[in-house]
Nucleic acid binder design. Structure first.
Length: 734
DNA sequence: ATTCTTTAGTTTTTT
DNA sequence: ACTAAAGAAT
């Protein structure tokens, strides 16, 4: 017990030992957030205030859930398996899946309902549009997918959506058709998991009461990332803060909310504070991660945002090194410089794994990878395809899904002609028409067909029937193995020249099935229905797509987007591409909300660094096959000058206009901007930084005409991109 | 059914 | 510049 609370600082201790009441913990970057959350749970259990089964902990990723369970197992004197079983720890989606399986009848679902991941959902929508003969130019599937998900996340079924124009009315109709299609096929998408559970609990009072009374404590991690529906879901369990509901313990950081684009509502934090009358918000402001200069820079950046809940990180670690800033002439130059810097760090004894290269968008990784590769520096990139998202795995899973549920049309379409068995587009069309006529699934429509299409499809159906029959007595890994052979998938990839890796992945799927079976066995549940374990395995595959492709353990430099760096920390961080239009991204600068999210993203990036932070930008950059000339990011100017050290000749500051460095003075060793045309009349050149009396600072990005008509195009950032007549415009070199 | 050609769209991502 | 996906030709 004293062990548990030892080494907590004053605020952490206060948060951990709060009396049972609704609580909001504002936890800054590196302030020991996860530690507080897990210690709180352990403390509740150890002091006898709550039994493990009275606790529900919600995270956003499976990784975070696993980590929390591992830490709890180490803190609590009970074996890990028991903790895992009696305490509900998981993602919103994982927990909803568990609830819906337990109460599938009340929720109006098959016991073996399947879960569509985003790609499956998109495929289902495309299939729907095709069946209804809808022009997918007018109704792009992706847009419709977003429309449906956004409405579900707002808690709205198709009948409840208000439509004021024809376009929306049609989309609502398609939403309704989509709902019916999912219903018919016995499948549920991600948003549906949440909405179904919400409606189930709302509608079914005894059930709601049961869970409200069971879960005395609900703890939420990354609360700033919750969407509206998730918040309503929590409110339901807490009985809106009235008697008989759970206590909500929400931990989050409004300054690290970077998922607005996918529905996260930072406003939930304030709403929670108000609606649940959270008396005093506990602020964790001592940072144990970064040196003083880095923190000060982060604070200076984030303070410019409006509507913050307010928080100022501090450290007792001392100022540390200055933040290093570098201006390159081209993106290639920037990458080369980063690589040189890494080489010298490694020479000085740094471990490559402690160095991270961060960027705003994935497109920027290519050039960095290229330079790292040429220099022979091991690196790993986060963000590739994940295991369960691979083509061969999705194919195998589709066969498995068809065994569990023949009405799953998405799975049917995926494998009906893969490997090819002579069921081409025409046969598939005939079948889809028949399914519509008979109002049945594709599988069930096959017997109604005659002719050539009927014959080949009947063969496919009997293949599936045989698969189902022959696997009832098999263990899950045996079943998977059997299906890989009988379906012809193995054979197909054996004959493909690049198929070796895919074959290995298929074997890995059998492995995954073995591991899953072992985990389930330790929870000692007996499943009466054949293929019930299969169904659980499929849910697992949808909900947990596996780790991103990267070899763990190797001493390699880490490359990732700022988004995926959230929650991680490194001794040395390079943040590249700090340019207007890139970071902040041009699509975000139109509205204040968007810009502030970019600023939070910048805040997240800066606070990843423990000891050393490099910021770099480039005068020119190849993007979509064209050279772009960007201004330095406004975020650079938001860092107080005293905290930085420029490794390249410093440019004048935007506001001050006091600079004296010559116009674009290039260190002689560096090559000039590639693709920069010859000097223009008046000595101007593309890529040059200029100042206009009205528009402020800008970069010359193009030129046309000659003599008296010569014009230049200048990117003034905020003030836009303008064509100016050289003979008229009053421009100063910066 | 396979292969070649054209076209559109390239911020961030988990479940 | 590059890719993935849809369309057209074989």
């Amino acid at each position: 017990m004293s062990d548990l609370l030892a080494n907590l600082n004053e605020e952490q201790l206060r948060a951990v030992t709060l009396p049972p009441q609704h609580a909001l913990i504002l936890a800054g970057a590196g302030s020991g957030k996860t530690r507080v959350l897990t210690t709180r749970i352990a403390w509740l259990v150890q002091t006898g205030q709550a039994a493990p089964q009275q606790i529900l902990a919600v995270t956003f990723t499976n990784k975070a859930a696993k980590e929390m369970l591992a830490r709890l197992a180490a803190m609590l004197p009970m074996n890990a398996a028991r903790t895992a079983r009696s305490m509900w720890v998981g993602t919103f989606h994982g927990l909803c899946n568990r609830l819906l399986r337990a109460h599938h009848r009340d929720a109006g679902l098959l016991q073996l309902f399947q879960i569509l991941d985003s790609a499956d959902q998109l495929a289902a929508i495309k299939r729907l549009l095709k069946a209804l003969n809808v022009d997918d130019q007018k109704f792009p599937p992706r847009e419709l997918q977003h429309f449906i998900n956004a409405n579900k996340e707002a808690g709205l079924r198709a009948h409840a959506v208000e439509a004021w124009d024809d376009f929306t009315r049609r989309r609502v109709e398609l939403y309704r058709e989509y709902e019916q299609q999912c219903e018919r096929e016995g499948v549920v998408d991600f948003a549906e998991l949440l909405l179904r559970t919400y409606e189930l609990l709302e509608r079914n009072e005894p059930l709601r009461r049961h869970y409200q009374e069971r879960f005395r404590h609900v703890l939420v991690d990354e609360f700033q990332d919750t969407n509206r529906l998730q918040y309503r879901w929590l409110k339901l369990l807490a009985n809106d803060g009235r008697e008989g509901g759970a206590c909500l313990f929400c931990v989050g950081d409004d300054d690290q909310s970077i998922y607005r684009f996918r529905g996260a509502e930072v406003g939930n934090m304030r709403d929670f504070e108000r609606e649940f009358r959270v008396g005093s918000v506990v602020r964790l402001e001592q940072n144990y991660r970064s040196h003083g200069n880095i923190l000060e820079a982060a604070n200076a950046i984030i303070v410019r945002n409006s509507g913050r809940m307010g928080k100022n990180l501090w450290t007792d670690q001392g100022a540390g090194e200055p933040i290093r800033v570098f201006e390159a002439f081209s993106d290639g130059d920037e990458a080369r410089w980063i690589v040189e810097e890494i080489q010298s760090l490694v020479r000085d004894g740094a471990s490559r794994a402690d160095v991270a290269l961060l960027y705003r968008s994935n497109a920027q990784s290519r050039i960095l990878e290229h330079q790292l590769f040429s220099a022979g520096i091991p690196y790993r990139v986060y963000g590739g395809l994940r295991f369960f998202e691979r083509q061969e795995i999705k194919h195998a899973l589709a066969y498995l899904r068809l065994i569990a549920n023949p009405d799953d049309d998405t799975a049917f379409m995926r494998v009906v002609n893969f490997p090819t068995r002579g069921i081409g587009a025409r046969s598939q069309e005939v079948l889809q028409d028949a399914a519509r006529t008979w109002n049945s699934s594709l599988y069930a429509a096959v017997p109604h067909l005659s002719g050539k299409a009927g014959t080949v499809l009947a063969q496919f159906v009997s293949l599936m029937e045989a698969m189902r029959r022959d696997t009832t007595a098999l263990t899950l890994p045996e079943l998977v193995d059997h299906v890989l052979d009988v379906s012809g998938l193995r054979n197909h990839y054996r004959n493909e020249k690049e198929g070796q890796e895919r074959l290995e992945n298929l074997d890995e799927l059998i492995n995954a099935a073995s591991n899953f079976t072992a985990e389930m066995a330790s929870e000692a549940q007996t499943l009466a229905q054949p293929h019930a374990l299969l169904s659980d395995f499929l849910a697992h595959a949808s909900l947990e797509a596996g780790d991103h492709q990267a070899d763990v353990g190797a001493d390699a430099v880490q490359l990732m987007t700022v988004h995926s760096a959230k929650g991680l920390e490194f001794d040395v961080v390079f943040l590249s591409g700090l340019e207007e239009g890139l970071f902040p991204h041009e699509n975000s600068t139109m509205e204040r909300e968007g810009l502030e999210e970019e600023r939070r993203l910048m805040y997240v990036a800066v606070t990843r660094a423990r000891q050393r932070l490099y910021l770099s930008f480039s005068q020119s950059r190849m993007l979509h096959g064209q050279a772009r000339y960007n201004l330095p990011s406004r975020f650079l100017e938001e860092i107080p000058e005293g905290l930085t050290r420029w490794l390249s000749p410093k440019r004048p500051r935007g506001g001050a206009g006091a600079g004296s460095s010559g116009s674009g003075s290039a260190p002689s060793a560096r090559a000039p901007v590639p693709a920069a045309p010859a000097t223009l009349p008046g000595g101007w050149r593309v890529g040059q930084l200029v100042r206009h009396a009205r528009f402020g600072q800008g970069v010359i990005i193009d030129a046309r005409g000659g003599g008296a008509d010569a014009q230049i195009q200048v990117n003034f950032g905020d003030s836009g991109i303008k064509w100016l007549l050289l003979s008229v415009a009053k421009l100063d070199a910066c």
